[in-house]
Design a protein around this nucleic acid. Structure first.
Lengths: 200, 200
DNA sequence: AAAATCTTTAATCAAATGATTAAAATTTTT
DNA sequence: AAAAATTTTAATCATTTGATTAAAGATTTT
């Protein structure tokens, strides 16, 4: 197996080709609407290889899902508990880092949320975001700053302003013109609006 | 057909039972993950009746989708072009009306966005939100108030703060405790934050 | 060089699925 | 009451799908 992981500079293994194809097709269509033949075609391989390397469509999907969950939530984790950061700075960094991530992977949040909706168990034992947030210092910082407002409201607004444009991109930005520039501009706007929320 | 639409106070027609079941199952699982047998079982009818009344799964789905699109976008339309309303009032009403709608139909935005992702054509010729917004007076109001900021940023933030908590409910509010009360509270918060955004 | 192992292929399969159909039951119309 | 129309049922079907398999090819190990 280690040999398979070694790759030439210009080549990838069949296994990695399949995973890359799975990332593309699963995030575009979702699990149920994706046929194994779609993935094989995208990877340029024979269908049987999918089962040879991953045992089943479901197991391949699970690997992609775990990877995507880590990608999405990995942004939060190093920031919200960093005691060296002010609340304002945390909010600014969350917005900036998420926008950076999603400009490259705009389908990520909708993919995860859709699959959780279709299969609520797919989040179980993988990510405990609420418990994690409850125990993070950012929640304490929100409470100290605004004891009159439930901290989850700030979290929902900050993430809403940051993730929602990507989730609703087909509706809000159907022509895709200038999208990247708008998202770049949005980093500063969300940082300003985050501070304004705290003072309002 | 008119006779079928007439219903007794306590009964609904088979056709309406099927549609109600379709609403439930499609919005929970999405089109591809829903089997016609699921809908028949939820409606308590024989599978053949689905084809008898709707000709196909796809046609049934299209009816539900159009209905849901109207439901989601119907909130915007009477508000954004109402010249009697100030910009602040429009934003407040949008937030309030959307929260009222989504407390009753929390799965609505994610359902629509997911189906658009899986089948990008499903929005074509149905809703032209961007063009509609471009020609609405709210855009002009945003430009007058803040000529330095693209109006779509305000729209994205307002809708993000309003819709996103419902879209991300399984992650942000997994225990569902107090959710309705939080959303009720959120109406006022979003109104305040909307004004703060305009001034920031 | 030969054997062992890994990878790939083409063919095939069982199960599931959306749709169809003939017949029966029910309701409506005459 | 009889005929016609509508609705419902159980059975069935063609197609699709995820998975399996034997065999062949390629690579690695001895």
């Amino acid at each position: 197996m280690t040999k398979q992981k070694e790759t030439k500079a210009l080549d990838t293994t069949t296994e990695e080709k399949i995973k890359e194809a799975a990332r593309n097709v699963f995030t575009q269509k979702g699990y149920a609407a994706t046929r194994t033949r779609d993935i094989a075609e995208e990877a340029g391989i024979n269908l049987a290889l999918l089962n040879y390397y991953f045992r089943s469509k479901e197991k391949l999907f699970q690997q992609i899902m775990v990877e995507k969950l880590q990608q999405l939530f990995g942004v939060i984790i190093p920031i919200v508990n960093n005691d060296a950061l002010t609340l304002e700075k945390k909010m600014e960094l969350l917005a900036e880092n998420y926008i950076n991530l999603l400009v490259k992977n705009p389908e990520l949040p909708l993919f995860i949320l859709s699959e959780i909706r279709t299969n609520p168990d797919s989040l179980k034992n993988k990510i405990h975001i609420q418990e994690f947030l409850e125990n993070s210092s950012i929640i304490r910082q929100f409470s100290e700053k605004r004891p009159d407002v439930e901290p989850i409201h700030f979290i929902a607004s900050l993430l809403g302003m940051t993730l929602f444009p990507f989730i609703a991109k087909p509706i809000l930005f159907p022509n895709n013109t200038n999208f990247d520039a708008l998202m770049e501009e949005r980093k500063k706007l969300v940082a300003v609006w985050a501070k304004a929320m705290l003072e309002a």
